[in-house]
């Protein structure tokens, strides 16, 4: 990576870190919401569905602004989290994680929800009659069967997080080394005449990482699928 300048390398590493954390942190919540949407029968399910998909529909700048006034230091949630847990999002890399996670959430939930809907609840009933409690049914039957969907959702979310720009720059601005992710850096380079070379290098890195992730997920999902179906 010697052909990347220090600022560019910082941006790439930060983007990797942000995307990884955004993916890992939203996995449990995403799985839970996917289950609610796939299996839940409660009033307001459609509302929850709409809410989850909102970042997909809203302009990213609007999502970023909503995050800013909610999770900023003066936002109701931002202040509560800072006072209670010392957790600060504003202008920190943690804020970039939050923005990326929110933007990637709908994609993750969609993939997981589809795989959950494909699981036959009759298999779970069968497991229960064989003595498996709800937790064990989930761990030994449901989870292995939806594993390909979880992998697909996670990788999609990771790729989306790698490319997130609008909400991130609106929420946590562009601070080299702290919140300047790869897309932010590309944008900044493109604002300066002659910045194309640096931007191009970063774009190549972004393409390689995203394609690599998608390829890895494809291979992994296929391997799991083979193991699950035994064919």
């Amino acid at each position: 990576m010697t052909w990347l300048g220090p600022e560019e390398l910082d941006a790439v590493l930060l983007s990797l870190r942000v995307s990884l954390w955004a993916t890992l942190c939203s996995l449990p919540l995403g799985l839970w919401v996917a289950f609610l949407l796939a299996r839940g029968r409660f009033p307001g399910r459609q509302l929850l569905n709409g809410l989850v998909h909102l970042p997909l529909i809203l302009p990213p700048v609007v999502t970023g602004y909503l995050l800013l006034i909610t999770f900023g230091r003066n936002g109701p949630l931002g202040r509560f989290l800072e006072d209670t847990f010392g957790l600060i999002f504003a202008f920190r890399w943690t804020g970039a994680v939050l923005a990326a996670a929110v933007m990637a959430f709908p994609l993750m939930v969609r993939a997981m929800r589809l795989s959950i809907e494909a699981v036959d609840p009759k298999l779970e009933e069968a497991a229960a009659t064989l003595g498996a409690s709800r937790v064990w049914v989930f761990l030994t039957v449901t989870l292995p069967l939806i594993a390909p969907g979880i992998v697909a959702g996670a990788i999609l979310a990771f790729a989306k997080a790698m490319g997130e720009f609008g909400a991130t720059i609106t929420f946590v601005a562009n601070i080299p080394g702290a919140t300047q992710t790869l897309p932010s850096a590309v944008y900044a380079f493109l604002q300066v005449p002659g910045g194309e070379a640096q931007a191009t290098r970063l774009v190549i890195v972004a393409i390689v990482i995203s394609l690599g992730a998608l390829l890895a997920s494809e291979l992994l999902a296929r391997r799991i699928q083979r193991r699950v179906t035994g064919s």
């Binding site: 202008f91 720059i169 946590v172 601005a173 562009n174 601070i175 300047q180 944008y187 900044a188 604002q191």
Partner: peptide
């Protein structure tokens, strides 16, 4: 300590 934005209005 500077938070940079993509335009001055931001």
């Amino acid at each position: 300590q500077v938070a940079q934005t993509d335009n001055v209005r931001a």
